[in-house]
Design a protein around this nucleic acid. Structure first.
Lengths: 203, 203
DNA sequence: CATCAGGCGATACAGTGTATCGACCAGTAC
DNA sequence: GTACTGGTCGATACACTGTATCGCCTGATG
């Protein structure tokens, strides 16, 4: 599992093959089946290992949820393959559960029936936001190397498409609106959500 | 592309191979490269085709955003593979842009600089929520056929793990909290987010 | 009618995950 | 000391995958 994570960190998720993992461990491929049931299980183990780095803390429900969000995002920045896996299967490994436990424990002051939807909502937002963020990062890396202005980086296509005039509102926003960096975008969205939660649970 | 979607609808995303698509079209595999650059492009086309079914509408920003969310979720219910693809790459196909255009147009009354983060947040939430929902649905389908109580469906593992007492808060929530169905969970989270947005943009 | 160019697709290659099953080796019985 | 036997390990094989290459055939042109 550690070998698999190293491979994925270095060359992306589809550089993880049972053969490569076995080679990294100086073992024959089929030997792995003595420890895992198949590739899917290996991926699950990788995700759970990543959850070991996601240890939310903080005082009060809002701080903990924010911490959970930031920690998850941080982990995905260090392991981009996490973005591909998060949310793809229910996570029930020990570290994922431990992370959940910490969150639940800190939400003791929240109405019991409200806890589940609240945590689910935050998790959903984080997963979606992180996914898009990583996807954009990869796209930027693929086209030119570091163009800050993604419209330019995307090349003529978007420029041309927007120029057709079929998407006037979209064009306006892309052209005239302030472009926030990834950090701000993430935090603003998170604040929207936490504000909404606060309004409802304190009601 | 339509052939690929049929395959994916029927047997899941990894039943989509260029060979199978070619066979479905009564064509030799390499012929496909006359129309697409590779498998990745085919997947992009599938996603954009799905966006054709995502046509948000409604009066006012809140209605449009809610409509966008529901329509996306609905599409993912009809095409479960969408959950695997959504957010995986930037979506710039014509239908995705058209959907974005509709949303942007309906957000004319919102401060221009606020539009991007708002839409990004809603999209992030929807993608994450839909992913988890589909993941759970699949897990339920894999274990027993239709157990309503997922703790039972997950079999002894979770039961045993929670019984260890290492996750007391988690256990309490799982055992004692009301279990909402997927529809409610989705809508509650969405309401959290929209409420939070409303509070900020009307400020 | 002869030539040629172009596109089509058969073939090939380097991989993938995993099922099968033969070989080998430890331990045991005689 | 030798024969046997049980069980584990991993080499091999299989059915696929996406895609590069390049020979052939066809249709157009001179």
């Amino acid at each position: 599992m550690r070998a698999a994570i190293q491979l994925a960190d270095a060359d992306g998720l589809d550089a993880v093959s049972l053969r490569k993992v076995a080679t990294a461990l100086d073992v024959r491929p089929m030997r792995l089946y003595g420890y895992i049931a198949g590739k899917a299980e290996l991926l699950d183990l990788m995700v759970d290992a990543a959850y070991a780095e996601i240890r939310p803390d903080g005082a009060g429900w809002r701080e903990v949820l924010r911490s959970l969000a930031e920690a998850t995002r941080h982990a995905a920045h260090e392991h981009e393959w996490l973005a591909d896996l998060l949310g793809g299967r229910p996570q029930l490994g020990p570290h994922a559960l431990a992370s959940g436990e910490t969150v639940m424990a800190a939400l003791g002051d929240v109405d019991l029936d409200a806890v589940m939807p609240v945590v689910a909502a935050v998790n959903a937002y984080v997963i979606g936001a992180v996914r898009r963020e990583i996807a954009e990062r990869r796209a930027e890396r693929a086209t030119g190397m570091d163009e800050k202005r993604w419209q330019a980086a995307l090349g003529p296509y978007l420029e041309r498409t927007l120029a057709t005039g079929r998407f006037p509102a979209l064009s306006t926003v892309v052209r005239d609106a302030a472009h926030l960096d990834a950090d701000h975008t993430f935090r603003i969205g998170l604040d929207f959500l936490l504000d909404g939660i606060e309004a409802r649970i304190s009601r």
